[in-house]
Simulated scan of single mutants.
Amino acid sequence: MIEVYIDGASAGNPGPSGAGIFIKNAGKVERFSLFLGEMTNHEAEFHALLHALKICLQNGFRTISIRTDSELVSRSMEKEFVKNKGYADLLHTALQLSKQFELFFIKWIPSSENKTADELARQGIRKHKEKGANTKNE
């Protein structure tokens, strides 16, 4: 089973946001650090999930276990419902993607167990800030 750790982060709420994805596959690891644009922290968490699901599908993974420190994302996926209608489209897309796997699990984990994905998400924000700073100096 493929273990996928995800996290979203925002520098402000809303603010520049990033997604971190850490995939463990039979001893091999892959790390993804993505800039997401301006959004809230909860939106960043959902976008981290969406990107992770797409990466796993592109790699042909059939059985995955997502680990997230976002209670909102894990509960929403398990219950297939979100109270805040602003997240409904994100949840709907995530549910559609998750149904393409033979087996899909999502589990909430404490932040202390998700440090790698958290750092990758923060790197996504920093990369964008550094790129913006370099662009302004040119």
Rank of each mutant, 00 (worst) to 15 (best):
L49K: 02
G37I: 04
K83V: 07
L57D: 10
E113K: 09
K28L: 14
G86H: 10
I23W: 04
A9G: 11
E30H: 12
S65W: 02
G15P: 04
E102Y: 09
F35I: 14
E80I: 01
S76G: 05
S74R: 00
N114L: 08
G8F: 00
I21P: 06
P16F: 03
S112K: 10
M1P: 04
L36C: 03
S111I: 03
V73R: 06
K79G: 05
R122S: 13
L57C: 14
G132A: 13
S98Y: 06
L53F: 03
G86R: 03
A26Q: 13
P14A: 11
E30M: 15
E119T: 14
H47R: 15
F101G: 10
N84I: 09
T93Q: 14
T68Q: 04
S111W: 00
G37D: 12
S33G: 11
A121I: 07
M39N: 05
L90H: 01
G37Q: 02
D7Y: 00
A26E: 15
I2G: 08
F22E: 13
A88M: 03
A94W: 01
E43L: 06
K127L: 15
R75Q: 07
I64G: 08
L57R: 03
H92D: 15
Y5A: 08
S17N: 03
T40G: 05
D118A: 08
S33W: 05
N137G: 11
M77Q: 08
A26W: 05
L36S: 07
V4D: 05
A48P: 07
I125F: 12
N84W: 00
T135L: 15
I55Y: 00
K136Q: 14
A94T: 07
G12I: 09
E38G: 04
S111L: 14
G124P: 10
N13K: 08
L91S: 12
L120M: 09
D89E: 15
A9Y: 00
G124D: 08
E113L: 14
G15M: 09
G124Q: 07
L90T: 04
F35C: 08
L91W: 02
G37W: 02
R67A: 00
